[in-house]
């Protein structure tokens, strides 16, 4: 089937990207000024400790050799090991991922409908107060630092009003409601920027579509204004919007690093920040790489959804 062929083609295109990503992550470690082993060991470490780390990380070998070892380990699913906790990167990620995934997905579930509805509404009522209000909100959304508004939100909703927990994460296994209650505030704060971004994008996509000849055809058929938007414009609007969902997921996960810090949530973001502050570079390197792989995978999925939305791609 053609769709399968397209999928395989995309998979083929993803392989060089994965390779590039792996090599980039490798060189990240070598950006460290001076002797990486000494930097990682910290200023108080003795020569012996530095030597131990150097051997542990294989830094005593030549760079090409190290790169090959790194790639070889990756091919076997070994993303490295923390030098602080003696825990493998993948294990650490597996422990933390549910938190970040929950946060990101809840934020995503807020972003997509709200952003699209706002954008389409603004386009439908263009040059009216609805348009101005939505666009002003969207502009504020993309201009305000998320962590700052998150702190203000905590002061209002958690400290002053006591409606929502100020911090922490409750696993889904303890029930959907407690899980959601803990997530709702951080996810909303995380989604704020993306909602603004998506609303702006959906507005211009809808305006583009509304200018198309087939919209005029629909009107000439006697289709009502709302039906024209819902049936004829909306799916065409979705085409460019779907392509940005990958970016939105990526940005949400990036933003979760900061939001996890505000709400003291034990997710991947905190893992990375902690690893950086403790100079646990193998951990930094491994997590970054794993996230990048995740994104290559997400973009593949977006591509499949895209195929489903746009029949022109499905059949070509």
């Amino acid at each position: 089937m053609r769709m399968l062929r397209r999928l395989l083609l995309r998979l083929g295109q993803a392989i060089p990207v994965i390779l590039v990503v792996a090599v980039l992550a490798f060189f990240l470690m070598h950006l460290l000024p001076g002797d990486p082993a000494a930097v990682i060991a910290g200023p108080e470490a003795g020569a012996e400790a530095v030597e131990r780390i150097r051997r542990q990380l294989g830094l005593d070998r030549s760079i090409p050799e190290q790169l090959l070892v790194w790639l070889w380990h990756l091919a076997q699913g070994d993303f490295g090991t923390s030098i602080i906790h003696n825990q493998s990167v993948l294990q650490a990620l597996a422990d933390r991922m549910p938190v970040t995934a929950s946060l990101t997905l809840v934020a995503f579930a807020m972003t997509i409908p709200i952003g699209i509805v706002l954008g389409v509404a603004a386009a439908k009522f263009r040059n009216t107060w609805v348009d101005s209000a939505v666009m002003l909100m969207a502009l504020i959304g993309v201009s305000v630092p998320g962590f700052w508004i998150a702190i203000l939100s905590v002061i209002l909703f958690s400290v002053t009003l006591g409606w929502l927990p100020a911090s922490g994460y409750v696993p889904l296994s303890e029930g959907v409601w407690p899980w959601l209650r803990a997530l709702i505030q951080p996810a909303a704060m995380l989604a704020l920027f993306q909602i603004g971004f998506l609303a702006r994008m959906a507005r211009s996509a809808t305006l583009d579509v509304l200018d198309q000849d087939y919209i005029r055809t629909a009107r000439a058929k006697g289709v009502s204004e709302w039906r024209t938007i819902a049936k004829h414009a909306f799916r065409n609007t979705l085409i460019p919007v779907v392509t940005t969902t990958g970016i939105i997921l990526s940005l949400l996960m990036g933003g979760s690093v900061v939001i996890e810090q505000v709400f003291a949530m034990p997710g991947v973001g905190r893992l990375i920040v902690q690893a950086i502050l403790t100079r646990d570079y193998p951990m930094v390197q491994g997590t970054l790489l794993a996230l990048a792989f995740l994104f290559v995978a997400i973009n593949l999925m977006v591509d499949i959804v895209y195929t489903w939305v746009d029949p022109r791609v499905r059949y070509d």
């Binding site: 198309q212 087939y214 055809t217 000439a220 058929k221 006697g222 289709v223 009502s224 065409n236 022109r312």
Partner: peptide, 22 residues
């Protein structure tokens, strides 16, 4: 709206762009 498409119908210049692609 009852007149459009029911009593008076219209066809346009560019059949490529006048039909909804999806």
């Amino acid at each position: 709206r009852r007149i459009r498409g029911g009593e008076i119908a219209m066809i346009f210049q560019d059949p490529m762009s006048s039909l909804n692609p999806v």
